[in-house]
Design a binder for these strands. Structure first.
Length: 300
DNA sequence: TCGCAGGTGGTCG
DNA sequence: CGACCACCTGCG
């Protein structure tokens, strides 16, 4: 992608009998920043590592900085439950490791005087490239909802109606049910999942996708029942790789008001500002800003 | 008891 | 368009 990007060196090894890989030469990387910036719902923090399910695989990730004092965001990524091929074919792309976030951060700081503090708060953020259908389901569930319950709903609907598999880590795991499966569920079937009024959104969207295929742009996303501007922007960013998407939720409304002086009610104006001001880097800028406002709100 | 949490669809001016 | 408001559910 550019000349600052170095080759990663990948070493296969076994960790407690589980095939694993160590990837050296990772930069601009922090697992808390990546998995706790609101973009994904299926990763669980276990000590210093994270365990999660992606595309029918379950792995555990941990990160060891080369020199924590000098640069805590540069170091070695360990993925338990992954082969070197899996890394090349899946995780490299999923973690967006082909993109140099160092250059992006420099570029954002240069063109914007107020975003620097937000970036320094979330130096290790990366935009995950997630499965589109899973992203659609996740963010329909996320509306007017809180994170623990979103995670619970996704786990529940998967364990009830998704395909199961035994992972390399030895756990029985469940995928999110595919569109065809979900299209054939009834609201009564979903009662146990406690999605509330979101269950009919999910079923309607599943029927649409099962019949006409996955949406290919933001306009087609918004046509789905239960997908408005905010959810569509999230899906486009995290599931389609549309880096110019600029989702505005309650937190972004706070930070855009605080840093850029736009009235909290004017979300359309905020989105338009994000798109015009940050352009192709809008989605990444949004993640730094989102993580920043969440972090400084925790402290109060 | 009641407001609120990663909003949206429906209705009305 | 923009301003309201109901909406499942669980938690403090």
């Amino acid at each position: 992608m550019n000349d600052r990007l170095q080759q990663y060196s990948v070493i296969e090894k076994e960790i407690e009998g589980v095939p694993s890989v160590e990837i050296s030469g990772i930069r601009d990387f922090n697992l808390d920043h990546i998995f706790d910036c609101g973009q994904c719902f299926r990763w669980k923090k276990e000590g210093d590592s994270y365990r999660g399910i992606v595309n029918g695989m379950e792995v555990r990730m941990s990160f060891e900085p080369v020199n924590k004092d000098e640069n805590p965001y540069q170091g070695k990524l360990i993925i338990e439950g992954s082969t070197a091929d899996d890394f090349e074919n899946i995780w490299k792309n999923y973690l967006d490791l082909g993109r140099d976030y160092g250059i992006i951060k420099e570029s954002l700081k240069k063109q914007d005087e107020v975003i620097g503090e937000a970036i320094s708060c979330g130096e290790g953020i990366r935009i995950l490239k997630q499965d589109l259908w899973e992203t659609i389901v996740s963010f329909i569930i996320s509306q007017n909802n809180n994170i623990p319950r979103i995670k619970g709903c996704i786990e529940k609907i998967s364990s009830l109606y998704g395909d199961s598999f035994v992972s390399a880590l030895g756990n029985t795991c469940y995928n999110i049910p595919n569109p065809e499966k979900m299209a054939n569920l009834t609201e009564e079937n979903l009662r146990e999942v406690k999605l509330g009024y979101r269950s009919k959104y999910l079923i309607a969207s599943a029927k649409e996708v099962a019949q006409n295929g996955l949406p290919e742009n933001r306009e087609e996303l918004t046509a789905l029942m239960g997908v408005g501007p905010k959810v569509a922007n999230c899906i486009a960013l995290f599931g389609m790789g549309d880096f110019d998407s600029f989702p505005i939720d309650v937190w972004m409304a706070k930070v855009m008001n605080r840093l850029y002086g736009i009235e909290e009610k004017k979300r359309k104006e905020m989105e338009a500002y994000g798109r015009s001001h940050f352009g192709q880097l809008g989605g990444i800028a949004q993640q730094y800003l989102f993580y920043y406002i969440r972090e400084i709100s925790k402290e109060n």
